[in-house]
């Protein structure tokens, strides 16, 4: 199958162009820093000089929930930003540079061309997130207590799906755009659009943003489920990739 031959090349590209390194470094940093920040923030606040004596006692002691909360907050911001940054040029760059035309005259279908890019970016984020989760889990163990690993894994799985939604939407923008600049503009518009609709009360229920809350509750041992958001997110990935293919299928590269 040519799919796997192309995928192998795409993953090698992720490695050689340092994309994998950047994503892993950023996510692992926040994986480690989140529990650490949660732990030291109260101490830092207490060490502020001239703090009224009564107020220092009011600062609550850090809890496991703070650690997980920090982790989710940082990942949602930087993970999504990276998903957009790493994906926005991938198709446009090949169109501009001429490598797309070069490859498409060999036995690489346009569908394979797009899907392998999605899969390779998915690989980058999955590997990086796994390393980040491991770091976060270990630091939380040292600084607080052991997180139940099953539900923590579920949290990270849900986060990965959120990242993949943004990768897919950005890939669509990249397939649509003719130039790198246009691709960047469209991609950030896409980011704002998906995040924006996600915060509209009723429709937002079906958007990826909800997955963070669900995962967070689960990781802390709470009961929660938000299947509409999961199906909505998976649907958004499928729709984005299909749209990307429809746009790219007849595009003259």
């Amino acid at each position: 199958m040519n799919f796997f031959i192309v995928l192998r090349k795409e993953i090698t590209e992720q490695w050689r162009t340092k994309r994998l390194l950047i994503v892993a470094a950023v996510l692992v940093l926040f994986g480690l820093a989140s529990p650490l920040l949660a732990k030291v923030t109260p101490d830092l606040l207490k060490s502020i000089p001239d703090m009224p004596p009564g107020l220092a006692d009011l600062i609550p002691a850090p809890t496991l929930a703070d650690a997980v909360g920090q982790y989710i907050k940082n990942m949602s911001q930087f993970g999504i930003l990276l998903a957009v940054l790493m994906s926005m040029g991938v198709v446009t760059q090949e169109k501009e540079r001429g490598t797309a035309a070069m490859m498409l005259t060999h036995p690489v279908s346009r569908l394979t061309f797009l899907l392998t890019k999605f899969a390779a970016l998915g690989f980058t984020f999955a590997v990086s997130l796994a390393a980040a989760a491991l770091g976060c889990w270990y630091y939380t163990l040292l600084l607080f207590e052991a997180l139940p690993w099953g539900t923590f894994l579920a949290l990270n799985g849900l986060m990965l799906i959120v990242f993949l939604v943004y990768v897919a939407v950005t890939l669509f923008c990249s397939a649509l755009a003719r130039t790198q600049g246009a691709s960047a503009g469209l991609s950030f518009a896409g980011l704002v659009l998906v995040a924006g609709i996600g915060s509209v009360p009723r429709i937002g229920e079906y958007f990826p943003g909800q997955l963070f809350n669900w995962g967070g509750t689960l990781a802390l041992g709470g009961e929660a489920s938000n299947w509409p958001a999961l199906w909505g997110s998976l649907g958004l990935i499928v729709i984005s990739l299909t749209a990307a293919w429809l746009v790219f299928r007849h595009q003259e590269t």
């Binding site: 480690l32 650490l36 732990k39 030291v40 060490s47 040292l142």
Partner: peptide, 15 residues
């Protein structure tokens, strides 16, 4: 009192 914070410095090394 920085002593409480100092104990976390080893955690910064991997970062």
């Amino acid at each position: 009192d920085f002593s409480e914070i100092q104990q976390y410095i080893p955690f910064l090394i991997p970062v």
